[in-house]
């Protein structure tokens, strides 16, 4: 799943470790999310969106990878 986490983080000028601490996840998980290797759970996606004063649909783009 494509996302704008890296872009938003760089715009704020914060490190992966800082956002990891703020979200209560590991730095490795932030790296995985930024690289699109891990799709966060809905609660974490909301936490990420709130952290960047954004919304989930603005932060995450499911493309055509919607699994139902």
């Amino acid at each position: 799943m494509r996302n704008r986490v890296r872009e938003a983080r760089l715009n704020r000028g914060i490190s992966q470790a800082e956002i990891a601490a703020a979200l209560g996840v590991s730095r490795q998980t932030v790296i995985s999310i930024e690289n699109g290797r891990y799709s966060p759970s809905l609660p974490l996606a909301f936490r990420i969106a709130r952290f960047f004063d954004s919304t989930v649909d603005k932060m995450f783009d499911p493309e055509d990878e919607v699994d139902i």
Binding site: G24, V25, S26, R27, Q28, T29, S32, Y38, P40, S41, L44
Partner: peptide, 17 residues
Amino acid sequence: RDSDTGAMIGRQVDERQ
């Protein structure tokens, strides 16, 4: 250690781990 395995052994895993 600051790694996935370290988190698992240290029992401080997040949702991905």
